[in-house]
Simulated assay, not measured.
Amino acid sequence: MTYLLEVDGVTLTYKTPQILVTATRRVSFHVNQSDRYVLLGPSGCGKSTLLKAVGGYMSPTEGEIRIKGRKVTEPGADRMMVFQEFDQLLPWKTVFENVVFPLRVTGKLSRQEADERARDYIEKVHLTRAIDAYPHTLSGGMKQRVAIARGMAMEPDILLMDEPFAALDALTRRRMQDELLQLWADTRFTVLFVTHSIAEAIRIGNRILLMSPHPGQVKAEVEDVESAGGTEGGATRLERQIHDLLFSEDKVQDADDKVVAYG
Rank of each mutant, 00 (worst) to 15 (best):
G56T: 08
T106S: 14
F247T: 02
V95Y: 04
V260E: 06
V259D: 00
T24L: 08
S110K: 13
I65C: 05
C45S: 12
R26L: 08
L40E: 00
V105H: 11
P91F: 15
E163A: 06
G63S: 10
V7A: 01
T94N: 10
A235D: 02
K258L: 04
T190D: 02
G44W: 08
S43T: 13
A147Q: 04
A53S: 14
W92L: 14
L245C: 02
M58G: 01
V105I: 13
G216T: 04
L127I: 09
I242R: 00
P42A: 11
I204K: 02
A133T: 10
W92N: 09
D8K: 15
I122D: 00
R188P: 02
Q33M: 13
H214Q: 12
D244S: 11
A166E: 03
E179M: 11
T190L: 11
D254K: 13
I208W: 01
L5Y: 06
Q112V: 11
T16N: 06
D256V: 08
E239Y: 10
G216D: 00
G56Q: 11
I158V: 15
H214G: 04
G141Y: 09
P91K: 13
T22W: 12
L138D: 01
M161C: 10
V31W: 02
E64Q: 15
L192H: 01
P213A: 03
S28R: 07
I19K: 15
S59F: 15
P42N: 10
L50K: 03
M81I: 15
A201N: 03
A228N: 01
T13N: 10
A185I: 07
E74A: 14
M1R: 10
E116R: 15
D250G: 01
Y57D: 05
L12K: 01
T94P: 04
G9Q: 15
M211H: 05
T2D: 06
T22S: 10
A261N: 00
V252R: 03
E6M: 08
V21P: 00
P102C: 07
D257C: 05
N32K: 13
L20A: 10
R70V: 11
G205L: 05
T236P: 00
L103A: 01
A23G: 01
D169E: 05
E249Q: 11
R207H: 12
T128A: 09
R240W: 11
A255C: 02
H243P: 00
D78S: 13
P156I: 09
E221K: 06
Q177E: 05
V100K: 02
N206C: 04
F29W: 08
V225C: 06
P135S: 07
S48L: 15
S110N: 07
Q33G: 03
M154E: 05
T61S: 15
V146T: 05
Q88E: 14
R25Y: 12
W92F: 15
T137F: 13
T94R: 13
R174L: 09
N98T: 06
H30F: 14
E200L: 10
F86K: 06
E64S: 14
A130R: 14
R174V: 07
P135G: 02
P42D: 08
D8Y: 13
M1P: 04
A255P: 00
K47M: 08
H136K: 14
F247M: 02
V105C: 08
A185S: 08
M142T: 05
G230E: 02
G140P: 03
